[in-house]
């Protein structure tokens, strides 16, 4: 006798796979949302973008008496 496709075992596994799948989708959505929120805020993100920015130049900041690490 063949193993029926609607066996309780299959339903349980389907439920488990769906649960894991939805959890992963929710995790991805959360990390994506978090990334957007961090970028929108822009707080801690400050990168060199191939353009001269005096605010990031240590020599300029030294002359002005400003510490760029503290965001002053």
């Amino acid at each position: 006798m063949a193993l029926a496709r609607d066996h309780e075992l299959h339903r349980r596994r389907l439920g488990r796979n769906l649960g894991v799948g939805l959890t992963l989708v929710a995790f991805i959505a959360l990390v994506f949302g978090l990334t957007i929120a961090k970028i929108s805020g822009g707080g801690m993100i400050q990168a060199f973008d191939h353009t001269y920015r005096p605010a990031l130049d240590p020599a300029v900041n030294r002359n002005l008496g400003v510490n760029p690490g503290r965001g002053e």
Partner: peptide, 24 residues
């Protein structure tokens, strides 16, 4: 082999957890 479903059910049911069991 009379009923493989009953046999499998006996062998696997205690070890087959549903998603809810992991949540618990």
């Amino acid at each position: 082999m009379s009923d493989i479903r009953a046999e499998i059910a006996q062998q696997t049911q205690p070890a087959e957890a549903g998603f809810g069991d992991y949540v618990l």
